[in-house]
Amino acid sequence: MWQYLVDRRELIAFQAYQHVSLVVQCVALATVLAVGLAVLAYRSPRITGLANGISAIGLTIPSFALLGLLLAPFGFGITPAVVAVVFYAALPVLRNAVVGLAGVDQSLVESARGIGMSRWATLRRVELPLAWPVILAGVRVSTQMVMGIAAVAAYVLGPGLGSLIFSGLSRLGGANALNATLVGTIAMVLLALVLDVVLVLVGRLTTSKGIRV
């Protein structure tokens, strides 16, 4: 396997880069979308319930099925992969953002308004910072989850490490089939761990010292 790695280090490194790049960009986009939606939703209990419901039902839909359904409007390639990954990445963030924002102590919001902060300033300077640890926890869940979804996306010719696994599958019994699959799988586990560590660090750097646990 070592030989395999050395021989194809450039290809593997490129696919790993593609994989991480897909995941990071999609999660970032999903976070922006989800937090935006949560901001619109969290003040109304009914819409909050709806958001939670969508999140729960959305997460129920198998990713392979959704990828298949997305082939019709988008065709093969990177677009259905991106759409699917963003969709799944947004759901945990949405739920956690709604929960986090709704969980902010109402008396703090009132005191912020009381000292003359506008609604927007209250959101930006009080509510979002306080909800941030919860939102970030959702981002971590999303990241781990979509690493694997991105792998299946390779089947619809998406980019990334998934193609190593599928090439292993297609040549099963062949010389490097096992190597390709193992490298693809293990690389994904490692990248997932690295990204998780990075997100924990981001969390430490972006969370106010006053509410760190």
Binding site: L59, P62, P92, G138, V141, Q144, M147
Partner: peptide, 14 residues
Amino acid sequence: MTSATDPAVDPAVD
């Protein structure tokens, strides 16, 4: 820490 391929509702989220 969650599932890889399938995004089913996970206790991690819960």
